[in-house]
Amino acid sequence: MPLRIHAFTMSDLASVSRAVDGAKPTRPVTFWSLATQRFLRHRLAVSGLLVMLVIAGIAAAAIWLAPHSPTAIDPVAFQAAPSATHPLGTDSVGRDVLSRLIFAARVSITVGVLAVAMYVVIGTAVGATAGYYGGKMDLVLSRIMDVMLSFPPLIIILFAVSVFGRPSIWNVILVLGLLGWPALARLVRGQFLALRDLEYVLAARANGSSDARIVLRHMLPNALAPVLVAATFGMANAILVEAALSFLGLGVQPPTPSWGNMLTDAQSLTVLERMPWLWVPPGFMILISVLSINFLGDGLRDALDPSLRL
């Protein structure tokens, strides 16, 4: 199914990007326009972007798109199979699965994107600093990462619950961001350790380039690969973990739907075997959004890295 979607959009988009290509030469060639060009040529990346935009559109227009209220209970249809009234069936308390799926896009996409953005920024900054400067700086920052990595995350989450009081979606983002950055920081640090003695970095340093310029212009683009992977996986993870967090009293509370908490309905073999409408739709939505983000990431990296040719 996901493959078919891509095949479809791919052929569709080829003409679009060709048209854009044709328009290009009239403008002066800069790094960014080159990057944009390269990105647009990456069909999967463009389809990924489009899918994400469509999902975002669905999330924004949920009120008009959903056939039912996402919390309304159908008193005669609990765990009912798809029908005319409920195109994707109903969940364990008789709510319309399609409507919940549509509304859930809001929470899941917001959490997925923002939480990951947060820990990518923190993790990259800390990891880059530690790896670039090394020595004392590395020691201190690494120990901070160690401390963060030493606690069972669940304890930190429960602690956060007590600190935050009222649950909200922003708390989830904050907690996921706080829990996620140390691992990413270690990855980036490893990359930077390997990069900082490369010829071009040494040359830039000899030129008297500022540290910030060396890191941002020369090293970061070359350290981006693992960051992008961590980000795409982090997103899938954030969408699923969000459900676990609302379970613990953090984040969106029922009856607000999210793809993650919709999947918590799938806790039995009977559901797995006989009630696919309870787990296929949210699972599928998570899959295609993560895939889209992944391709988007691939495209971005290719576009920003001049050494790679498509």
Binding site: P2, G260, A266, Q267, W279, G283, I286, V290, L291
Partner: peptide, 15 residues
């Protein structure tokens, strides 16, 4: 490989 890897993480472990 891409689709399979992401399929593996798009469903919760208990499932």
């Amino acid at each position: 490989a891409t689709v399979l890897t992401f399929l593996g993480i798009s469903l919760p472990t208990f499932f």
